[in-house]
Amino acid sequence: MSLVFEHTTLGQRVLFGSGKAAENLAAEVARIGPGKVMVIASEFEAVIAAAVSQNIEVTLMYDDVAPHVPIEKADKARAAAVRHGIDLLVCIGGGSTTGLAKAVAMTTGLPIIAVPTTYAGSEATNVWGLTEASRKTTGVDDKVLPITVIYDAELTTSLPAELSVASGLNALAHCVDSMWAPRADPINQALAAEGIRALNQGLPLVKDDPEDLAGRELALYGAYLSAVAFASAGSGMHHKICHVLGGAYNLPHAQTHATVLPYVLAFNSAAAPEAERRIAAAFGSEDAVGGLNQLRERLDAPTALKNHGLAEEDIPEAVELILSQIPTSNPRAVTRENLTVLIQAAFAGSVPEV
């Protein structure tokens, strides 16, 4: 059968090098030209942000960052950018920080330079997310795609091993979801498979030695590939589940993705045999679920949503909220009954079953 598909590759400059973040940021700001710079970084990342931005002139350092980008935080940051006449946004941090920069860019059109310190991957996508009244809304807008991403594995050493594992598994979820997302094609599937391979190799090294830059470089490389694949393929079943859970119940982003992933993989595997084989091969395993479970066991990964803030009585409401969000292209039909079983299993942390 001949190949027929439509693929879009997003245009973005990527600078990758350990210990080079400050140097690369200064060069990029100079390349873009003179203007007022707003650096967005959480209080937790203040020291890193100061070091990375030491060679540029900063008009505004902004640290009012929160998970899932509450609309109130977005409006406040947007107003600050306008008030100070900002020309360029620089975000230094994880997914929440990048998400806030995207929220500002969405209404102002300002360009973003992203300097990630986690494996969230938001920096390589044109996807935005905002939370209002405990409901998370996501969308796609090319205005929010950072024009440049500066990767420096040294910056990720600020992330403890446990959070590095959760963040890396979040990246792995981008890869897995890209195998059957609404716009999945051979190109983004190839990127996703290479992302799985890199993360499968790199994350155990990070777990064993959090200061090991070789492992962190592999994980960061894999996280970038995962995000590019996700941006191209779109948001599949896994991400729809996690966005609802995170927005509605304020669950931690990375841990939620890390916990839910094996259940979605087990749910879809039999209905997507070609994707399952590619995932298994990327893990170097006979089957995809087995390969993922072996990695998760090696990493002592998060195992139950009940440990991260979901209450059992919230499951029926969560199922109803999620059902309407599942893409019709999902390989296996999703019903209220089988989705309830999936969420209950993820809540309890029981062994995922194909």
Rank of each mutant, 00 (worst) to 15 (best):
N200C: 09
Q325C: 09
A231W: 06
P70R: 04
P70S: 04
K136N: 04
A233G: 09
L15V: 10
V104K: 05
N293Q: 15
I196C: 05
E23D: 14
H7W: 02
I326W: 00
A258F: 01
D208Y: 12
R83W: 11
L145Y: 03
V206R: 01
E312R: 14
A231Y: 06
N24E: 14
T137E: 12
A120F: 01
K20Q: 10
P186Y: 00
L339H: 02
H68K: 06
L159I: 06
G291S: 10
I279M: 03
G291T: 11
L110W: 03
P316W: 08
T131C: 03
A198K: 13
V90R: 05
G236T: 04
P186G: 02
G168A: 07
A214F: 12
E211I: 13
H243R: 04
V90T: 00
Q294A: 15
V47M: 13
L225H: 04
I113W: 02
D177Y: 13
T303H: 11
N188E: 09
A120R: 00
L295G: 01
S2Q: 12
A101N: 05
Q201C: 09
S134C: 12
L145H: 04
M106F: 11
R278M: 15
Q189V: 14
S350N: 11
L342A: 06
A193M: 05
P70T: 05
G290P: 09
T125K: 00
L100K: 04
A254M: 01
R83A: 15
I241T: 08
D141E: 02
V47C: 12
V4G: 12
P186S: 00
E123M: 01
A304W: 05
I326S: 05
L110G: 01
C242T: 14
S158A: 13
A233H: 04
R183N: 15
S235Y: 08
G19C: 09
D185L: 07
R135V: 13
E23I: 12
A254R: 00
P160Y: 08
R197Q: 08
A254H: 01
Q201M: 13
A333H: 03
A190H: 00
A270S: 09
I92E: 01
V176Q: 06
